[in-house]
């Protein structure tokens, strides 16, 4: 019975993705992308992964959609010359062959999963109850540190290129009451998601994305425009996350002799501290990635 729902959802995902990629109007394509992202978040819930569903809905559909919409209004459309028929046929056959081979390879891959047993036996000593948070912030915390470094590298690239800051128009009288309600709710829900990530689905990335959404609403309403003071604050927050994480890694090396091996009994404190720094830092980084970072005019 529930298989019918899964089949319909999967068909809907492929259909909206195909429509989004095939449309000529760029804003409609970006809208199709956001809809596909939300349907994929629903499919992650069906697959038993609520943390990933939250992150995909907030970051994958919401923030990426905002970024793409910002650029869709600023990039010039390419000339609409269609590719020659031979190229299209070759591309279609290669794409179909590759996707069928991928599906067949994953479907028939043999072997048993090693990780679930290892994760369940390590969960009790890891300091948190949510297995995904335990993997992200205790067992594979090195990968999370490098992920923050990748975000930081993207921020440096955007800083070097320094695209123009989007100028929000005046949005009318309804925006201020909306902001008065939404911003406190964003802050509250972000803190709640951060705290509850230790036991139920949630965590630092979802909380950071929600806070970034709050910053973007402030930006659209004209209240958090990237003036030099706001920029300095944003850059300080973004740097602070990476700095605190790196300092914590070095401190664990000094305290226990192994890199990123938390001291016994104190794991939860370390995890919560790193997660809080990560939330603020991710929110600042996503806001700066959206607004661009203007260079100071050369004197």
């Amino acid at each position: 019975m529930s298989m019918a729902f899964d089949i319909l959802l999967a068909l809907g995902i492929v259909f909206t993705a195909g429509t989004a990629l095939g449309l000529r109007d760029r804003i409609a394509s970006v809208t199709g992308f956001v809809i596909t992202g939300l349907l994929i978040a629903l499919s992650f819930v069906r697959l038993g992964a609520p943390d990933v569903a939250l992150a995909e809905a907030a970051i994958g559909a919401g923030l990426t959609g905002a970024l793409l919409l910002r650029s869709a209004l600023r990039l010039k459309p390419a000339e609409g010359s269609k590719s020659p028929a031979l190229q299209r046929f070759l591309a279609a056959s290669i794409a179909t062959g590759l996707s069928c081979a991928l599906a067949w390879a994953v479907y028939t891959a043999p072997g048993t999963a090693l990780y679930p047993a290892l994760v369940s036996e390590g969960l009790a000593k890891s300091g948190v109850d949510n297995p995904v948070t335990a993997v992200l912030l205790n067992f594979r915390v090195w990968d999370t540190l490098l992920e923050i470094v990748v975000l930081f590298a993207a921020l440096v690239l955007v800083r070097i290129i320094a695209p123009a800051v989007p100028q929000p128009e005046a949005l009318g009288e309804l925006m201020l009451p909306f902001m008065r309600v939404i911003i406190p709710v964003c802050v509250f829900l972000s803190g709640h998601l951060l705290w509850q990530g230790a036991t139920v689905p949630g965590g630092a990335f979802q909380a950071g994305a929600m806070l970034a959404g709050g910053f973007l609403v402030l930006f659209m309403g004209g209240l958090a425009l990237p003036t030099p003071r706001v920029m300095a604050f944003g850059k300080a927050l973004a740097l602070a996350g990476l700095a605190i994480f790196a300092l914590a890694a070095l401190a664990t090396e000094a305290l226990t002799g192994t890199l990123l091996f938390y001291p016994d009994g104190d794991e939860k404190i370390w995890i919560i501290a790193i997660e809080s720094a990560l939330t603020l830092s991710i929110a600042a980084m996503l806001y700066l990635l959206f607004c661009g970072m203007p260079r100071r005019p050369a004197k």
């Binding site: 990039l75 594979r140 990748v150 955007v158």
Partner: peptide, 26 residues
């Protein structure tokens, strides 16, 4: 839980890469 963590990491890295690519495109 381990592939879930990988997918989560991948989604966050994707938004950073998209922002950098869009800046380059502009």
């Amino acid at each position: 839980a381990v592939p879930q963590a990988f997918v989560l990491t991948g989604i966050v890295v994707l938004v950073g890469v998209t922002a950098a690519l869009l800046a380059l495109a502009e």
